[in-house]
Design a binder for these strands. Structure first.
Lengths: 348, 348
DNA sequence: TGTTAGCACTCATCAGAGGTGAGTGCTAAT
DNA sequence: ATTAGCACTCACCTCTGATGAGTGCTAACA
């Protein structure tokens, strides 16, 4: 149906969307007929506009204002009109130079990526670290805290360090713990947490385990340490840039926006949705999807290393976003980060 | 000079400040003479107000509005009029129950404290983790990344895990690293980073070190790992509550506020200022101090364990803050956190 | 039949005018 | 010393009319 647009309608829709992207204001028929040389009078443009409005691609805030693209209109623009040009060599090099990953911890890299995404796009940058379950086991350490509580430190293949506290048999000595971690480090090295869990489950069913004290303790400890999910880590950068956008300029909208960013829950949910997809994904936060992100668009892409640890990064901005600029930025950055993750792994 | 206030002036100033705290609106003479039974006519109150204004404790936005306390006025109120009542047993127990520190990582505890501070005060909660330099050495681990880069994991006595990446001789084997970390773990245990540095410096000057390969490598690695500062960790909770305050309700002020919170730099600076003090401290962000925090007040207190790892927590809100409620909250929370830090240390 | 000029109409936005009320400072009476 | 009385100030609200951008419709035109 929407594909039934003839060329002229498409051109006009495109012109309206692009004008609206740069002005944030309703677009009138006169402006379209003038700026873009279609050789059409405003009246003709108006006719087309009326058709587009009927199809649900445009809307007018009130009778005597111009037209604004609807969510559906943006969707159509993105799906069929948007041409994403690749970055040229120069731009790629510039982007590479923007990132300084020398001797950075994984956390810092994530944060830095968010900062640069935000800085270059002038919207809000999001980076979600690789999910715990998809990371590859590298090393585990146990440190005794008081009262039978153990600090577990887990390091993934990519150098991501995570820790949690678990309850444990208070009679375990430091020496026991060392033996246990040595055992686990040699047994589990190179497996994803996913695989680790499968292996643990299998071994626990093996009766012979019962007779090997170290192995038994090791299994029960690692179960406690690795079975549960570790909270997702989301880095948000440049939230204040969002507040500068005219569509979020009222105090109420600002409040809502900051609250949404602060809780992170909704953002993580959204980033998760694109988690299995390849390449750049675009979500348009229309009326249909979550209320709290009405008027927002999210451009994301996954990054991963060769062993499969998958994270997601992206940019969130107003629906009226400069897609032709942001899409390649997100795309190339994801590739870049993927390469950095691979670099972290020691080639042995 | 300001202390030359007679009792009536003090009472009126107090009334004005408290009315203003609860209403956020200029306070008029009529309201004062009515609500507080001073048995004074509005006209008399006005006379006193005029005096207080002359002294710089009050100001009027324009001729026909009421009076607003100035920064100096608030300062006076805090210094000489504010009575901070202690929490009673019930309130203390409630507060204790608000915090759930069971099996939490240090990071989570900090975040949770921020959340609770913010939730109970309805302002913005701040928690700065103990400074790296003040923490007590517990354990260090080295993990090889690619290209001669080492991941250093440092665990403090309180279970705070920090990591960084350093360059290192690529020829070091995993076995070497284990020997080195074993050496360091036994040598440095129980020292603050401050003391560690002194010890390293001393040992490096000892010629005999040159002949002990392990010791030499250990020293050079630990220097690289522990010499530099690790960035301060600041947890900000409930920034959006700040935006709900009428004094920051314009879009511009909201933007400024969020930017200030986002960069964290200024906040860290401020929290640092009270870092050596004992007990609750109050900063009033008047015109004199930083522009970005004009109209804000900061209530902080340090927390520390017996070994001296010092962090800071607090609440930031409008100058027009409910000091009599927030001060005991901050105070008692700091005590609570201190006790939790001590609990983390294994009694051996 | 598609295009366009012309025209009446709509409606957000802005500036100015007038009214309202909270609050003040001053003065004179208590 | 305190206070009642009063003129005065000024932010705030509402009403008004003017302005102009933009629309929809109709009739003329190629």
């Amino acid at each position: 149906m929407a594909d039934a647009l003839n060329e002229r309608s498409q051109n006009i829709l495109e012109a309206i969307v692009e004008d609206y992207i740069s002005s944030a204001e309703p677009v009138g028929s006169r402006a379209i007929s003038k700026k873009h040389n279609f050789n059409l009078s405003p009246a003709s443009v108006r006719n087309v506009m009326a058709d587009l409005e009927e199809m649900g691609l445009l809307s007018s805030p009130h009778t005597s204002a111009g037209r604004i693209p609807t969510g559906k209109g943006f969707q159509y623009y993105i799906d069929t009109l948007l041409e994403v040009r690749d970055l040229n060599r120069n731009e790629k090099q510039n982007l590479r130079n923007s990132y300084r990953f020398q001797n950075m911890r994984m956390e810092d890299i994530m944060q830095e990526v968010g900062r640069v995404l935000s800085g270059l796009s002038q919207y809000t940058g999001l980076v979600m670290a690789p999910k715990f379950i998809s990371t590859v086991f590298r090393q585990i350490e146990f440190i005794r805290l008081s009262q039978g509580r153990l600090l577990v430190i887990y390091v993934s293949e990519t150098g991501l360090v995570q820790n949690k506290v678990i309850e444990a048999d208070p009679s375990l000595t430091a020496h026991d713990l060392e033996k246990i971690s040595n055992y686990l480090n040699s047994e589990l090295n190179g497996l994803t947490i996913h695989e680790v869990r499968a292996k643990l489950k299998q071994e626990l069913q093996d009766d012979r385990v019962l007779y090997d004290q170290v192995k038994k303790q090791a299994l029960s400890l690692s179960c406690a340490a690795l079975q549960e999910e570790i909270e997702d880590q989301l880095y948000v950068s440049g939230a204040s840039l969002m507040l500068g956008q005219p569509e979020f300029s009222t105090p109420e909208q600002m409040m809502k926006m900051i609250q949404t960013f602060e809780s992170k829950k909704l953002l993580i949910e959204l980033l998760d949705q694109g988690h299995s997809a390849q390449g750049v994904q675009i979500f348009i936060g229309s009326e249909s999807s979550h209320v709290d992100l009405e008027g927002c668009s999210l451009i994301t892409s996954n990054f991963s290393n060769q062993k499969g640890a998958i994270g997601t990064l992206g940019v969130i901005g107003p629906v009226r976003m400069n897609y032709s600029q942001v899409v390649p930025l997100v795309d190339f950055t994801a590739q870049l980060v993927s390469r950095v993750l691979d670099r972290e792994i020691e080639k042995e």
